[in-house]
């Protein structure tokens, strides 16, 4: 198992370094980082632009900038931001904000997916299965930003009905000092928006996995031993069906972050998604490159965890 893990890690490290170079190159080529300064009216004098170029290291050739950036990472220095932000500190703070949102979404999406998946499998091709399938396919197809806007409008109607602002459409609450139960008012809408896409795909996976398990010999054996259907499903079926599901959750990490970028923008959470969007808008190379590096590292790590879990759960994988 250790050799298996080391082999995977040996592949992951050069992938991250290669990814960092490609990302840095792509972001650098995407535009002029000083465009927003030049675009002001009236524009700053040329002397000021020269000072800014020097300040942001833009007077250096690309390779020098990349080498400075990548070596700086080992010292915990993510480089200078044209938005004047401390990139390292910002990544840390914003990861916490995004983590709060993503964690809540994972937990809720997983619970909903398991319930719907199991119920659908147990009622395969029945009315309930068909209805839930329709619902999940709709959820799968709904664009997150559009659904988020609908949620907001529904929240406004709800608030007007109850006569006070219970559900909030902007902010995470924590940043503005909200504590306790009131935080739910900030968490509900973005969590639902993020959950909607994820639970749908997960529930289809659970359903398929459960249908396969239900027709397995050991399930028939369990029933023959005298277990009720519910007992057989809970003790043997569900456990076996859900083990590979854990790896699916790990592999879906990148999809979750993608959803969080949109959700954070719509609900104005200052998380990793918002950091990326601002970085892209302002062509802040070091911010975008740092974000992508963190994301790439996390994705590769999650894939590694998924591989290791597979290996752990299925000994046949380890031997290959």
């Amino acid at each position: 198992m250790l050799r298996f893990a080391l082999r995977r890690l040996a592949i992951a490290v050069p992938m991250i370094i290669l990814a960092s170079f490609v990302m840095y190159l792509m972001v650098t080529l995407s535009g002029d980082p000083l465009a927003r300064f030049r675009d002001t009216d009236p524009p700053p004098p040329p002397e000021t632009i020269k000072l800014l170029e020097k300040q942001f290291g833009l007077d250096q050739p690309f390779f020098v900038r990349y080498v400075n950036w990548i070596t700086g990472l080992f010292r915990g220095d993510f480089g200078v931001s044209t938005q004047n932000i401390d990139i390292g500190a910002e990544l840390g703070n914003r990861m916490m904000v995004s983590f709060r949102l993503i964690l809540a979404a994972i937990v809720i999406a997983a619970i909903v997916a398991i319930v719907i998946g199991v119920v659908s499998a147990l009622r395969q091709y029945g009315f309930l299965d068909t209805t839930l399938s329709v619902v999940t396919y709709i959820a799968l197809a709904v664009p997150v930003f559009w659904f988020a806007i609908l949620l907001k409008q529904a929240a406004i109607s709800f608030n007007q009905m109850v006569g006070s602002t219970v559900l909030y459409t902007i902010g995470d609450g924590v940043s503005t000092g909200v504590t306790g139960f009131a935080l739910l008012g900030f968490l509900v809408l973005p969590t639902i928006a993020l959950v909607i896409n994820i639970f749908a795909s997960w529930s289809r996976y659970v359903r398929a996995s459960m249908i396969e398990v239900l027709s397995a010999d050991y399930m028939r054996l369990a029933r023959a031993k005298g277990l009720s259907r519910a007992q057989a499903v809970m003790r043997h079926g569900l456990r076996n069906a859900l083990l590979p599901f854990i790896t699916v959750v790990a592999l879906d990490f990148s999809a979750l972050v993608g959803g969080a970028v949109v959700t954070e923008a719509v609900f104005q959470w200052r998380g990793m998604g918002d950091l990326l969007l601002n970085g892209v808008r302002n062509i802040d190379v070091n911010v975008v490159a740092a974000w992508l590096l963190v994301f790439a590292t996390a994705t590769i790590l999650m894939n590694l965890i998924a591989d290791l879990l597979y290996g752990l759960l299925d000994p046949r994988i380890r031997q290959h």
Binding site: I149, K152, Q153, A155, I156, N159, T165, Y168, T169, I170, G171, A265, V266, F267, Q268, D274, N278
Partner: peptide, 18 residues
């Protein structure tokens, strides 16, 4: 001063009295 960087969200926040 509340910073809402996605301009499409501001009228909704106004409507919701945030």
């Amino acid at each position: 001063y509340r910073m809402i960087t996605d301009t499409q969200q501001t009228p909704i926040a106004l409507q919701n009295k945030e």
